[in-house]
C-alpha cells in the first residue's frame, strides 16, 4: 500500500499548494500557490524540506487525517494553531514544532480563532505529479494538486516517504508574531487616477472588513465606498498579485493567488508582496487598514524580509533544547520586525 494521509474530515478548504507556477500567465494560467508563502516555507523548514515543497493549505477549519504510512513527520504553521493527536492517545503539539506519527494514528489540525489560513508541511513532500511545473491546486480549471480540487472525505493524500527519517524533532523557538493589528502596506495602483481625490483619501483613512464571499481568487472588502471619475471599465491589462481592483459597485477586491491574469476594472492600489501572507491569514470579518509606501520602500521591505527569514531559519532547535541568550540578542536586533513590522522602514 502506498503511503498516504487519509482524509477523515476535509475541513472547509484544504488544498495542495507550493510556491505556484510561473511562466504560463500569458496563456491565462494564474500562478496559484500558497496564499502565504512565508508560513509554508517556515513549516517546511521545521520538517527539513526545501522551502518550496508542496504542503497542505488549510483555510478556516482544519482537517482530520489517519496515517496510512509506517510513520510521517509533520508540522503546522501559525501562532496559536496546533496539531491535535486524537488516537491512540490525546495530545496537543503546538504550531512551529515537528511531530512524528505512526501508522493508524489520527490527528486534527486546529486553527486559532480568527486565523484564516495555515499550512501543514509533511517531511519528504507529496507524491503527486506536477502540472506546468507545480503541484499547486487550481480548482477553477480543475488541475494541480489532488484531482484539481480541495480535499474531500476519504481522499488519500499520497506521501513521498514510507516512513519518517530518524532526524530529531525540531521547533522554532521564536516564531513570527501575530500582526493582526498592523496596517497592510500598499503602493498606488496603475489606475489610481481613475478615482476621485476624496476616494483616494477615504481609501487610506478608512477601515475595511473582509467579506465572507472571499476566496483564493480574491478578498472582497466592505467599507469606504470608492467613486470612479470616468466609469469603471478599462481596456483590460495585466494583473499583479495583490492588485486591488474596484468594480462598478465601488467596493475593492484584492486579487490573490488564483486571480485571473488580466482584468478590466481600475486598480486603485497594490498590496506589497511582503504583506500578502499577513493579509491572507486574516479571514472574513477581520478589519484591515491600509498604509501607503513607495515602490522603493516596498522593494526594500521585500529584501529585508528575506534577510530576516534567512536569519530565522538559523534559529531552528531540537525539541527540548531552550533558546540561549545569543538567540535573544538576535531577536532584540529586530529580527521579527524585519518580517512583520509595518513601521520599521517607513
Amino acid at each position: 500500500m502506498s503511503p498516504a494521509l487519509k482524509t477523515l474530515v476535509p475541513g472547509i478548504h484544504t488544498s495542495v499548494q507550493d510556491f505556484g507556477r510561473a511562466g504560463y500567465r500569458h496563456l491565462g494560467v494564474p500562478t496559484s500557490g500558497a496564499l502565504d508563502r512565508t508560513e509554508l516555507r517556515l513549516a517546511n523548514l521545521i520538517v527539513q524540506n526545501p522551502a518550496e515543497t508542496a504542503g497542505l493549505e488549510i483555510l478556516v477549519f482544519g482537517p482530520t487525517f489517519e496515517v496510512l504510512a509506517d510513520s510521517v513527520r509533520v508540522a503546522v504553521s501559525g501562532r496559536g494553531n496546533s496539531i491535535e493527536i486524537l488516537t491512540p492517545s490525546k495530545s496537543i503539539i503546538p504550531a512551529w514544532q515537528s511531530v512524528t506519527l505512526q501508522r493508524n494514528h489520527t490527528f486534527r489540525v486546529n486553527l486559532s480563532p480568527n486565523v484564516m489560513c495555515c499550512y501543514l508541511a509533511i517531511e519528504g513532500g507529496l507524491d503527486i505529479a506536477p502540472v506546468m511545473g507545480s503541484l499547486s491546486t487550481y480548482s477553477r480549471a480543475a488541475f494541480g494538486g489532488l484531482q484539481g480540487r480541495a480535499l474531500l472525505k476519504g481522499d488519500e493524500v499520497p506521501l513521498t516517504l514510507r516512513c519518517a527519517s530518524d532526524k530529531e524533532e525540531t521547533y522554532l523557538p521564536r516564531p513570527p508574531g501575530n500582526e493582526a493589528e498592523i496596517p497592510i502596506r500598499i503602493t498606488w495602483g496603475q489606475q489610481a487616477d481613475y478615482f476621485t481625490k476624496a476616494s483616494l483619501e477615504g481609501f487610506v483613512a478608512g477601515e475595511y472588513s473582509i467579506l465572507p464571499a472571499s476566496d483564493r481568487m480574491g478578498y472582497r472588502l466592505s467599507g469606504f465606498n470608492l467613486e470612479h471619475k470616468h466609469g469603471f471599465n478599462i481596456v483590460s491589462d495585466g494583473t499583479a498579485l495583490g492588485a486591488i481592483q474596484v468594480p462598478g459597485d465601488g467596493f475593492p477586491i484584492i486579487l490573490l493567488a488564483d486571480c485571473q491574469t488580466t482584468g478590466g476594472y481600475p486598480k486603485i492600489a497594490t498590496v506589497i508582496s511582503s504583506d500578502l501572507g499577513s493579509l491572507a491569514r486574516r479571514g472574513p470579518g477581520s478589519k484591515i487598514r491600509f498604509k501607503i509606501v513607495s515602490i522603493k520602500e516596498a522593494e526594500a521591505i521585500a529584501r529585508q524580509k528575506e534577510e530576516a527569514l534567512r536569519m530565522l531559519e538559523n534559529t531552528l532547535l531540537p525539541v527540548g533544547q531552550n533558546a540561549d541568550l545569543d538567540l535573544d540578542a538576535l531577536y532584540d536586533s529586530n529580527l521579527i520586525s524585519g518580517i512583520y513590522d509595518a513601521n520599521n522602514l517607513t
Binding site: 510561473a22 511562466g23 504560463y24 500567465r25 500569458h26 481596456v235 483590460s236 491589462d237 495585466g238 494583473t239 499583479a240 491574469t261 488580466t262 508582496s273 515602490i295 522603493k296 516596498a298 522593494e299 521585500a302 529584501r303 528575506e306
Partner: peptide, 23 residues
Amino acid sequence: VVETVPTFRSLMVHYDPLITSAA
C-alpha cells in the same frame, strides 16, 4: 524578469524584487 503578459494595449513584466527593482 519572471514572466511577461501581453494584453490589448500593454505588456506586464512580472519581476522578482529580490533580484531586480522596478527602477
